[in-house]
């Protein structure tokens, strides 16, 4: 294809890809709800750098909704954790233009990933766990989030550069 797809179609593709990635990841056994890589986020990042913040917000929220409906966790505690993390991450992405320096997918991804984890843990503490012990584990979870953020950022970068190569569009961030 030589022409860029319409923005709303691209959002739909990215959201679909994100949901697919989310479900694929859910099939992998993990020691706990905190130990996920969150590959679906790379598509949110692509949307952010390619189409802007509102597109990223849409992709992220659609992924949370559709993903939970398909996995059968809609309105469950997991769903609220997911949602709170996603909302936090999206809000933080909105602050990116305010930064005094330019950031690319890696930086935004790490930032969003850390915020996502903090929001999840706070909501989990508030709604589910109800005792302070969870905060003992938080530093270690955050270190994990830092690395998964890095990974997702790199993957998003790779996708974005290939998108640019194929669509011969001006990609600037």
């Amino acid at each position: 294809m030589n022409r860029a797809p319409r923005p709303d179609l691209l959002i739909a593709y990215l959201a679909a890809a994100a949901v697919a990635a989310h479900i694929l990841e859910a099939a992998i056994p993990a020691p706990g709800p905190w130990f996920k890589i969150g590959l679906a986020n790379m598509f949110t990042l692509v949307a952010f750098f390619h189409l802007g913040w509102s597109a990223a917000a849409l992709v992220s929220l659609m992924r949370v909704m559709a993903g939970s409906l398909l996995l059968g966790t809609f309105l469950s505690p997991t769903f609220f954790l997911s949602l709170s993390g996603a909302i936090g991450a999206v809000l933080v992405m909105g602050l990116v233009p305010l930064l005094p320096f330019r950031v690319g997918p890696v930086g935004v991804s790490i930032l969003a990933s850390l915020t996502h984890m903090v929001c999840q843990v706070v909501v989990a503490w508030w709604l589910i766990i109800g005792h302070d012990g969870i905060f003992l584990a938080l530093p270690w979870f955050l270190i994990g989030s830092w690395f998964t953020g890095l990974l997702n950022g790199l993957l998003a970068y790779l996708i974005l550069t290939r998108l640019a190569a194929h669509q011969s569009m001006n990609l600037q961030w």
């Binding site: 930064l99 320096f101 330019r102 950031v103 690319g104 997918p105 890696v106 930086g107 790490i110 930032l111 850390l114 830092w146 890095l150 950022g153 790199l154 970068y157 790779l158």
Partner: peptide
């Protein structure tokens, strides 16, 4: 993949 801004953010966090 990273710009100076990214690396700054990575280091700080």
């Amino acid at each position: 993949a990273t710009q100076p801004g990214d690396r700054w953010l990575m280091a700080l966090s």
